[in-house]
Structure formats: C-alpha cells, structure tokens
Amino acid sequence: MDTGAILMLIYVFVLACFAGYQLISKVPPTLHTPLMSGANAISGITILGAMLATREAAGQWGPHASTIVGFFAVVLASINVVGGFMVTDRMMGMFKSKG
C-alpha cells in the first residue's frame, strides 16, 4: 500500500463520515433503537477482515496462529451480523400503523 492508496482511503473515510452524519441525522427518534442494533450488524463488516485473516486453514503443523485468532474474529463478527439484523427485523415488525 503506497502513499497514494493511503490517501485514497483517508478520502473515503472523510466522505463516508460526512455522508453518514447527514443521512443518519434524518432517522426519526422512533427508530433510534433499531438504528443502533442495525449499526451493530453493520459494524460486523469486520467479518471480511476476519475471513481474510482466516483463509489459510492449515500449515504444515496444524492451523496457523492467524487462522485460530481469525476464527474467533469470524465467530464474534457473525454474532453481530446475524444477531444485529435479526433483532432489528424483529423490532421493525412491531411498528404498526393505525390502519
């Protein structure tokens, strides 16, 4: 990763923070709890990093240290992804209109 790539990521970071702030300000307070649990699920995106770190299942003498640590990262991130999206859906299903 050269300096250009680093700067590009910083660009992406700044723009995403700005866009996120603008968009999330528009979420009504009624939905703030599901917003938080949904955010939990989205922060489970670290699952991608966890998968990449776990990819080399076994070396010559059994699993690598990276694979073992990565495996636990995959477990934790999957809890967030599956638990977060499912509980958010459960809550959203409760919000009913008068009609």
């Binding site: 990521l9 970071f13 996120g20 999330i24 938080m36 955010a39 922060s43 995106i45």
Partner: peptide, 10 residues
C-alpha cells in the same frame, strides 16, 4: 472503512 464510518457517525 465506509461501513465503519457510517456506524461511527450514527
């Protein structure tokens, strides 16, 4: 980076 920032902002 993008998803993390969205959650951070939220």
């Amino acid at each position: 980076v993008v998803s993390g920032s969205l959650v951070g902002a939220s």
